[in-house]
Amino acid sequence: MTQILKLEGLMVRFGGLTAVNGVSLTIASGEIRGLIGPNGAGKTTLFNAISGLAPASAGSVHLDGLEITSKSAPQRAALGIRRTFQTVQLVQSFTVYENLLFGLHTRAGNPLTRLIVGSYATPDADADAIIDEVLDYLGMRDLKHRVVDTLTIAHQRYVEIGRALVARPKLLMLDEPTAGLSPAQIERLDDLIGRLSSDWKVSILLVEHVIPLVVKLCSRITVLDRGRVIAEGTGAEIGQDAAVQKAYLGERLDA
């Protein structure tokens, strides 16, 4: 099995604070990897470091065998890393369709126009077909021309996932996709995430607070605490791990 994502000794420092401290991690193609850890463990910072929003202070990031440590966020997006956000980041005044168009921003176009104006001017000729396919898959075809801020939070999260899917990414990173959803909505999303990796041939890195969900979806789970990987394994192995129990229990006592 090929490795889609490989992190080696990744560090992210902000001034005196080390938010991610030497994380090494590999994700195989088609894998759904869970990433859990107490609040402040560095999960979102690790996400930012992988997607290029937070610069790595040390260590390396490889995507599908290609070193991308020094590449910017837009470059990584073009190479196939897409993500969603803990708080939904959509253009609220645009329709679902237009928000999905953003996802297609990096698609290759005419080389001449790319030379002159970068990736801005490539035509959207087959964009409609791609977007319709994704919307059908998400069961949102009827919402295509709805303005995003008239949608429920659950639908907004689907739009975010759709924006990632239209680019046919290699790695899809989901940052707490169930935050703010009702149990029924979580169940639907849970079902969707389970199908995503095989239907779209994408590896998934999932940050989630709802531990049973992670255990159910992910064959392997990585546990992060204070910027370090403290455990990695199947759901059952993680549940037995003393370090993990300490990290979570400690948190509960602190709170």
Binding site: S51, L53, P74, Q75, R82, Q89, L90, H105, A167
Partner: peptide, 11 residues
């Protein structure tokens, strides 16, 4: 509307 979302979509 969202610089980080723009960056993460390749803009």
């Amino acid at each position: 509307d969202s610089e980080i979302a723009a960056q993460s979509s390749g803009i």
